[in-house]
Simulated scan of single mutants.
Amino acid sequence: MPNPSPRQTEEFKKHCYQPKGAVYSDYPLADKPTQVRLAEDITAAVDALGNDKTPWLRRVITEAVRKELLSQAQGTVSANEVPSPPPASPPLDADTLVKVLNEVLAVPRLPAAAKKKLETLLETLSQSQGHLPLG
């Protein structure tokens, strides 16, 4: 039978759940953790860090957020400020896009509404590039 009135002293609580690695004195840790699933190979590489995993993740995420999401000059993001977009992808040529759209349209049991929109997009793209639909 569990203890109906457990007592946790402040001394006991000090030793529970000690944060790993450096904790910034100016920035106390949040009450809730931030979690994300990663690809298996990435997870394996991070897990290989062993006891250094948590401090490394905390440092890397903090640096990335400060660099990419927070304005270093202002120190914080204002309520109306939009974070910078991700880096630009290489341009996609029209022929590749037409090929990919045709492959998607060939998927069995594609919902009718999606198929119709993709066909419209393919037709518009083909006309603007002077191509005939490949499908």
Rank of each mutant, 00 (worst) to 15 (best):
A64N: 14
N51S: 15
T62H: 03
N80V: 09
L70F: 09
A88H: 04
K99V: 14
G75R: 04
A45L: 10
D52C: 08
D93V: 02
L97F: 04
K115I: 02
Q18D: 05
E10P: 03
K99N: 06
D52W: 07
T54S: 11
H15P: 02
E10D: 14
D93F: 01
V98F: 01
E11Q: 15
D31W: 08
G75C: 04
P28C: 04
L49M: 04
A44V: 06
D95K: 10
L110H: 00
V65W: 05
P19A: 03
V77H: 09
K67T: 11
S84N: 09
E63V: 05
V36T: 07
G50S: 02
E40C: 09
E10F: 07
P85C: 07
N102A: 09
L105S: 00
Q18Y: 03
V36H: 06
K99T: 13
A94C: 08
K32S: 09
C16D: 09
A22Q: 15
R66E: 10
S84E: 12
K13G: 05
E81M: 10
E81A: 13
A22S: 09
L70H: 01
G21W: 01
A94M: 06
Y24M: 15
V77L: 15
A22H: 10
T76C: 11
A44I: 09
L29K: 08
L29P: 02
L70R: 01
D26K: 07
E103H: 05
A30W: 07
G75V: 02
D41L: 13
A44T: 10
S84I: 06
A79M: 15
P91L: 02
A79D: 14
R59E: 07
L105T: 00
L70S: 02
K53G: 00
P90N: 07
P91H: 03
A39Q: 10
R109M: 11
V36K: 11
P83F: 03
L49G: 00
R37A: 11
K14L: 12
A88Y: 02
R109N: 09
A106G: 08
P83W: 02
F12T: 13
R37V: 09
E10C: 13
P33Q: 05
L38P: 01
A48G: 06
G21N: 03
K99F: 10
P90E: 09
A64Y: 13
P111W: 01
F12S: 11
Q18G: 04
A48S: 12
T96G: 06
E68T: 12
A114I: 09
V98E: 01
D47R: 10
V23D: 03
P91I: 00
Y27M: 13
K53W: 01
E10V: 14
R58T: 08
D95P: 01
I61H: 05
R58Y: 04
T9I: 07
E10G: 14
P91T: 01
T43F: 06
A106H: 05
